[in-house]
Write a protein that binds this DNA or RNA. Sequence first.
DNA 1: GTCTATATTGGGATAGAC
DNA 2: GTCTATCCCAATATAGAC
Lengths: 198, 198
Amino acid sequence: MPNSPEHKENSRHRILASAFKLFSTNGYDNISINQIMADAEMTRGAFYGHFENKSVLYREAIFYAAGNSEIVRNKPEKLSDKEWIKKLIQKYLDKNNVTNDCPCPLAALITDVTVREPNVRKAYTRTFKRMNHRIVGYAQTFSNSSSDTVLATTAMIIGGLAIARAVDDPQLSKQLLKSCTIEALRLLDIDNEKQSKP
Amino acid sequence: MPNSPEHKENSRHRILASAFKLFSTNGYDNISINQIMADAEMTRGAFYGHFENKSVLYREAIFYAAGNSEIVRNKPEKLSDKEWIKKLIQKYLDKNNVTNDCPCPLAALITDVTVREPNVRKAYTRTFKRMNHRIVGYAQTFSNSSSDTVLATTAMIIGGLAIARAVDDPQLSKQLLKSCTIEALRLLDIDNEKQSKP
DNA sequence: GTCTATATTGGGATAGAC
DNA sequence: GTCTATCCCAATATAGAC
């Protein structure tokens, strides 16, 4: 049944997944609709049955990727808020996310959105607020950190991952992930070992 | 003397300044060589007398902007290391840098460089290392912060500024700059007021 | 809903005059 | 060193068949 609604929905998902993967790793302008549709195993003509144009696809792809990220999912029952957020930060600042095909859009597109149409920027802002809001929610059950501290921590882990992806020195990337993990856990009162000069 | 070396050097500077301004505010692909040369008050044909191609221009523009940034300049005699770095962080995380035509390339191009030719990425990496190295140098004269802490702080101020530029909510931008300033100064042992829940 | 074929344009790069 | 004129390709979007 190639004309069923399920089939169309399925095609749409495949397009969105391919779009985010290719945009985030190659940049919006370096990827053509052709390439996206080929990756999703369709031809270009089919594209316009799903999306109005390339810019709309970009916005939808950000929402799609944001909705798939682990942080918006519900916490596993057996973990405490503290254990859960510790795990999230460690997974976020993992080297897999540096080379990943499907990284956090907040890190992968941080600069890019400023030069796109307003709707893209709006999508980014909403996604950022949601992430910060989640961290605030978990942290306040056990931590003394102020909202300033949480916001700065959110900026730090996104920035750290983004820079780790940007630089061409694997050693520096690794160091960045490690340093940001340590500091983020400390800022949120999760791990409090005393720091010392190296 | 339109053919003097000084004249050529002058033209080159104008091209670089226009290029960085336009690239960082509009994105590499949304700006044509035509627009850059028009901004620099020349025509497109003149471009190739200065740069091999658009990609080389981009790399050179990053170096140009990085070389102009305040942090690589020498500290004014009358200020201590501590006073100077406090001033630098406050100026870095100022709302002028959010709307600025000529912001820090590390924040303005953070995502963009990952999808460009290797030489661009290399330019970014060198610039980041230099900035971090400067902060380490100033901080170690008065602070107990480990190199992990300084690296994470560098990521935080760059990330904070980049996100403040990305989001379309001025209130959130302002909050981000403020929060990152407070935390950065605290992480580097510059201001140590006790934090409290809001 | 998906395909092929085609119209159209924007912009990078080169050639050659001044 | 800077200009104008030109070549050329890549990619968006549309039209129309199946």
